[in-house]
Nucleic acid binder design. Structure first.
Lengths: 239, 239
DNA sequence: ACCTGAACACCGTTCAAGT
DNA sequence: ACCTGAACACCGTTCAAGT
């Protein structure tokens, strides 16, 4: 136990774990070969012995977090299909919340790690086991979008000049009075919506744009719709 | 009309238009200050007179395409709300198909251009005009996700080693026999799904993972579900 | 087998200077 | 007002070399 600790040799796993930690702490732009090497107390060129190039590093980083997400979602228990998928998707979300940069990084990648396909095979098994045709199950997978991985593509948030990424939720306090007044002119319905939601503050949501609530709303909307398509006869449905 | 044409002075608009053209032709990584300047027959530093830095350039590029998309979606006609939203979202999709890099770029941005908020205000007007409460309309916006902008978060596609981005559709021909056999072991249900869908080739879809069909399926699933929530009484619904 | 040092061809950006 | 040239501090990466 001298002053220079941790002389464990490098490995792909150790490099990727350090990379994930770096990105968690300082964001994707901070992930450079030189800085990552410094974190590992090694020269930048050493990384190239374990990874071919930076693209492989980014792929590996995503592989690491997606493996974690898929592991958290688990294999699915023996409850009914809606409850099982719901539980898996919400478990995935808990992990994704710790890596909020992952959706944006995923959007830039060209391939998905193998674990994702195993995970989707399990979802498919759940649907088919519940009586879905492969055709409808396939469409269900597309309809779910990114929900199985624990995030929703949040392209809209009612804060034209707010901080955080485009997908971030809006803290109610961020909308100052002056800002809201300016909004009322150009965006009357958005302003009215904000006003209406703030008024109804007596209910049990955590606040404006509570994303857990939104996530579950969308998820249940899709699950209910799919249930109806699988077993028609309860209500009118075309297309 | 001498040999050196196009000596029109630079402007923010001209810079952004050239940037969009560059990205359309060669992808986001090709968009560097030096290369963009070369395309405009100007020195790299000249760009800084019209844009503060590269982040502003990327914001501007996205602003340009989103303005185009919002313009294509239009203000909404006088048909019923489902048909109106459907028409708007599908029109947006036609533009987005010409800028397939835009979703990934949008995921990296921190703010959305103002035109997007005007567009969403119009969608909100449609919903509220159709009898939605602001609460339900708000949730509908979140449930739509990226559909109003013309794309679906396609995180799943049954091609573990295919080309194109993670969100790309799979051309049926890409799955060779050997690849499919290997898939059958590890991913039995995905393999069965591929087999089942290929078998049913007599129907009018354009092919495996026809994304126009998938897009409309998801859209209609959401529209039908929202219609039911707005006017309950036709079928059982909880949550 | 695993890691390093120096070097190369790029980046975005600052700053003083040109017209 | 608009554009430029040289320079700076970074990148990812190659290549020959160390142990």
């Amino acid at each position: 136990m001298t002053a220079r600790t941790s002389r464990t040799p490098l490995s792909r796993e150790r490099v990727l774990a350090a990379a994930v930690a770096l990105v968690d702490a300082h964001g994707v732009p901070a992930l450079t070969m030189r800085r990552l090497a410094a974190d590992l107390q090694v020269e930048a060129m050493s990384l190239y012995y374990h990874l071919p190039d930076k693209e492989a590093l980014l792929d590996g980083v995503l592989e690491t977090v997606l493996d974690e997400i898929v592991r958290a979602a688990g294999p699915g228990g023996d409850d009914v299909w809606q409850a099982r998928l719901r539980r898996q998707f919400l478990a995935a979300r808990q992990v994704m919340l710790r890596h909020p940069w992952a959706p944006a990084l995923l959007a830039t990648r060209h391939t998905a790690p193998a674990a994702v396909y195993v995970y989707y095979d399990g979802i498919l098994a759940t649907l088919v086991g519940a009586g879905f045709s492969y055709r409808l199950a396939h469409r269900a997978l597309h309809a779910f979008g990114s929900l199985p991985l624990g995030f929703a593509q949040e392209v809209f948030s009612p804060a034209p000049a707010g901080g955080g990424p485009a997908g971030a939720e809006l803290a109610g306090a961020e909308l100052a009075g002056a800002e809201l007044a300016a909004m009322a002119d150009a965006l009357p319905h958005l302003a009215a919506m904000v006003a209406a939601e703030v008024h109804a503050a007596g209910d049990p949501t955590l606040g404006w744009c509570d994303s857990q609530v939104e996530f579950e709303f969308t998820l249940d909307l899709l699950l209910d719709g799919l249930a109806r398509l699988r077993a028609p006869g309860s209500a009118a449905a075309d297309g």
